[in-house]
Design a protein around this nucleic acid. Structure first.
Length: 291
DNA sequence: GCCCAGGCACTCA
DNA sequence: TGAGTGCCTGGG
């Protein structure tokens, strides 16, 4: 990956495996607006980024050289070699070969941990447009104003301290529904230090068990949180779509249990299971495989 | 009006 | 330990 600075914008060229729309729209994150073809506004880490593609270049706009180096490089996972990962998981696997070919520009984001946790609590039994709306409502109500870009006001996702101001009724107004009490539990437990969001020394199993002590956090929400904000890419978040595609394509159409699926994923993809999951999820969702 | 969505808690065998 | 059911909400 190479880049230069031009008129306060960062211009990325000779990069590997990155299509903006594929990365943002594959269901791993919720705080972005599409404002044109391969042209997005992204909100993360208290910043508003405009990112778009021109020819073979990706332009990072409404940002600084420092923020590009300190925030966006890590956020978009530019330090990782995706060609190698894709090769490893699709070797000897026709299904993964197809799934990777379908969206070769997906990268796994490194998101903020608290926001990611709350976002995936909200995701349960919910649809993506609704999830986006709820997170937006919460940010507007409890988070700090960041910036106005092209006449749209953007707000940061609230910190645990800020979100502690919310009561159940307030969260219900944000359309969280029955998940309001789960969010309150998560916030309290984080503030009390029972949930350690800086626990990088923990094993993935220990981390999962800790997260699952929060009300409303089961295996799926815990795995998504670990994968998209703790960099634990050996997890294999198994939702209905992944269950469908795995059952259909790896178990001959028989409905497999989550346990069987995890064993199969570990066996086939090992340390890269999470990447495989994301290509498969995206592929299954687009083509409604098994639905 | 009914059904369901990127799960989970709760209940009951 | 596993199966069954209800849940806010809004779109098809």
């Amino acid at each position: 990956m190479k880049y230069f600075v031009k008129n306060n914008d960062i211009v990325l060229y000779e990069y590997d495996s990155f299509v903006i729309s594929q990365t943002l729209e594959c269901g791993q994150c919720f705080r972005f607006n599409c404002i044109g073809p391969e042209n997005y506004v992204v909100v993360a880490f208290g910043k508003v980024l405009n990112i778009y593609q021109i020819g073979d270049s990706i332009i990072f706009s409404n940002t600084t050289d420092d923020d590009f180096k300190n925030i966006w490089c890590r956020y978009f996972d530019f330090d990782r070699n995706y060609s190698e990962i894709k090769k490893s998981i699709s070797e000897n696997d026709e299904i993964l070969t197809k799934a990777v070919e379908y969206a070769p520009g997906i990268r796994i984001l490194n998101q903020e941990r608290f926001e990611c946790l709350i976002s995936f609590i909200i995701s349960q039994n919910n649809r993506i447009p609704m999830i986006k709306k709820v997170i937006e409502n919460i940010s507007r109500k409890y988070g700090k104003y960041i910036d106005t870009f092209e006449d749209v006001e953007y707000y940061a996702f609230p910190t645990p301290e800020e979100l502690a101001q919310a009561d159940e009724a307030g969260l219900m107004e944000c359309k969280t529904g029955f998940r309001a009490k789960y969010i309150i539990d998560a916030v309290l437990r984080v503030l009390k230090g029972e949930i350690k969001l800086d626990a990088d020394d923990m094993s993935t199993d220990e981390l999962r068990n800790m997260l699952m002590t929060i009300k409303g956090v089961g295996p799926k929400v815990a795995d998504c949180t670990m994968m998209f904000s703790f960099g634990r890419c050996e997890t294999f978040p198994t939702d209905v779509w992944v269950k469908r595609i795995m059952s259909e394509l790896y178990f001959g159409g028989r409905e497999a249990s989550v346990k069987e699926i995890h064993q199969k994923a570990d066996e086939c993809f090992g340390e890269y299971a999470g990447y495989a999951q994301q290509y498969l999820f995206n592929y299954a969702r687009q083509f409604k495989i098994g639905a």
